[in-house]
Design a binder for these strands. Sequence first.
DNA 1: CGGATTTGACCCCA
DNA 2: TGGGGTCAAATCCG
Length: 364
Amino acid sequence: MENAGNLEQKPLFNELQQGRELVKQLQMHLDPSYSEETRNMLVEKILSSFDKAISMVKWVSSDGEARPTGTTPVDSPRSDSGSPHSEDSDRRDIYKKRKTLPRWTEQIRVSSGTGLEGPLDDGYCWRKYGQKDILGAKYPRGYYRCTHRNVQGCLATKQVQRSDEDPSIFDVTYRGKHTCFQGSHLIPAMGTLESSKQMLKQDQVHHQDHLPEQQNEQQQAQEILFHFKTGLKVRTKDLDTGEQQQQQLMTSSFSFPSTPFECLKTENHIFSPPTVDHYFSGNLSPSFLSPATSESNYFPVSPCRVNSFGGGGYRNLQTSESDLTEIISAATSGTNSPIVDLDFPMDFDPIFPFNSPDFFPSCS
DNA sequence: CGGATTTGACCCCA
DNA sequence: TGGGGTCAAATCCG
């Protein structure tokens, strides 16, 4: 986190700026000719924006440590199938690391109206590697890991489990941060649509990695982004205040376009922050229905594309192990704003040539 | 044909 | 020892 300081300020700055913009918009909309709904939405967005900014401040000030043991994120665990010994210890390390990896859970509600259920797309490219029946749970739990695991050594994983009581709710537990550069990270939100498609078929995912702190931050940021874009509504339990408000927000009117940005899939996602910003600021179109298909098994899967959820809202996030997580969540819950920039700062070098074609690998 | 998913077996930890 | 998590061969799909 060397230059984290500055980097982190950017998102904060963006957040504040956004808040200001929203206030301006609200001001314009004070005109009675605008619907009350619109005004409420703006108010919520503004609140959310400030909440996020606050979260960021907290985050920055407490930046600390959530760093998992290993600071070497990337390296595919098994890549070196060399010595048997190492393989063995590798595996053990993995377990150990796993424990220390930041982990957080999000509850995502999928709209069931359309028959689609898939919601959970966080913009990352996930590959399902397992499914298991969990004791006491009606539905099996799906295990997903980052598609780029082998290529980039991204250890992020996620578990998706459908709620017993409310099948429309999926508990998604993320573990580890993404160390890979997928477009999704950045533009994750969009990934939602397609993801849903897949998700429909599958369960849930989990993702995470043990990344260094930077990565953590990144991830968080990314997550936030996702949610935003995706229109997901996620919340962290830990978040204390503001959440409800935020939630309302989310639930209320906003949804992100599930456009194909993301779909840009990994290949191009170059997420340009600005773009994202624009998105948020201006267009969040309410397209809730996801085009995705409807075949579903248990869970929706989200590959790398976008899904849009139908209207649901996320419910709680539980979690967490670290403050970061909380922060993240908080931010996440904030929702509608463009926090996009957060990611950048943390992950990438500002000067990084995102446009470079080879920068992003492809998702599938 | 390559990549993703399925699914039973295996491993580790509580 | 059992449950949860992961592996990996088989299978599916585009």
